[in-house]
């Protein structure tokens, strides 16, 4: 089976600080994994903030070059692709929809532009049809979005537009960087269910970056857990999350708050201030 995406010991470092105190940050260290071509999957990346997930995503998207190692799409270094040909196959969805869209640009323009540039739409009518179809897949329609500016929608609605925009290009791979972290549980479920459908019905592979362990368990096929730029645990999603073996993975799992964690910070959590006499009635 050939590979859709291969990461081969990919690393990225940045230097930070001023003239005199510059120091190197190893944001991603020797990450390797492969997504097979004939087996669409949802591949989840979990990790603490600052663990390098977004940096990894930007390298996969060809936005940042790796400091060492190689990212290959269909056997070719992503750096060697012509940008448009690459974007027709790999599309991003970012975390903060308000930062992803230019506030002065109407949302339908983004959809039409993506449809024409990457989705193969020959004319405006074809672009509208593609855009409407993609919007309907996320529970919206062109009629609702047409002529609207980003600030006219709330975060959740905008995130659905962002998913639709990626779909318009009819890509093979979507890189979704924390696409549900800003939205509520029911919308979160509807977006991950949508990811599941895209995988099962369209054969799309999705790299799903998240810190939501519940949806990761529910929807993903395989996952990696990152800490400080390194992969600390990898494997089938449900097996790993049911019985995490690395201490960090266990810490992660234990930190998940659910309705059953009622009062974790009201009573049980050992806070020095909460133990102050008189602080609790």
């Amino acid at each position: 089976m050939s590979a859709l995406l291969e990461l081969d010991k990919v690393s990225k470092s940045f230097s930070r600080g001023g003239l005199f105190s510059s120091r190197r940050v190893d944001a991603v260290k020797e990450v390797s994994f492969t997504l097979d071509d004939g087996r669409p999957e949802i591949f989840t990346v979990i990790g603490e903030s600052g663990s390098g997930k977004s940096t990894l995503a930007r390298m996969i998207l060809g936005i940042n070059a790796a400091s060492s190692g190689q990212v290959r799409l269909a056997g070719r270094d992503v750096a060697s692709y012509e940008r448009r040909a690459f974007m027709a196959q790999v599309q991003p969805i970012f975390q903060n929809p308000f930062e992803a869209f230019n506030p002065l640009k109407r949302l339908d323009r983004y959809l039409f532009m993506t449809a024409e540039r990457f989705g193969g739409a020959a004319d405006r009518a074809a672009a509208e049809e593609l855009a409407d179809g993609a919007l309907r897949q996320v529970g919206l329609s062109l009629a609702e979005v047409s002529g609207r500016f980003p600030h006219e929608l709330s975060g959740g609605q905008l995130q659905r537009v962002a998913v639709a925009r990626a779909l318009v290009a009819r890509p093979r791979l979507i890189v979704a960087d924390e696409p549900v972290s800003m939205v509520d549980a029911s919308l979160r479920m509807s977006i991950v269910n949508l990811f599941g459908r895209l995988r099962d019905e369209l054969g799309l592979s999705i790299i799903y970056i998240t810190h939501d362990l519940a949806t990761a368990y529910y929807i993903s096929d395989r996952l990696i857990i990152m800490q400080k730029g390194m992969v600390v645990e990898a494997g089938p999603a449900r097996a790993v999350l049911s019985a995490p073996s690395h201490p960090y993975s266990r810490q992660l799992r234990d930190a998940v708050l659910t309705p059953d964690s009622a009062g974790a910070f009201r009573a049980r959590h050992p806070l020095k201030a909460a133990a102050t006499p008189g602080a609790t009635p």
């Binding site: 903030s49 903060n96 930190a255």
Partner: peptide
Amino acid sequence: DEPTTALDVVVQKDVLGMIRSIQRE
């Protein structure tokens, strides 16, 4: 307004604990 929504669960738990302790203090 959604102050910890963008954080991972481990840091979120810390930050919530911190918010709670500052609030109590």
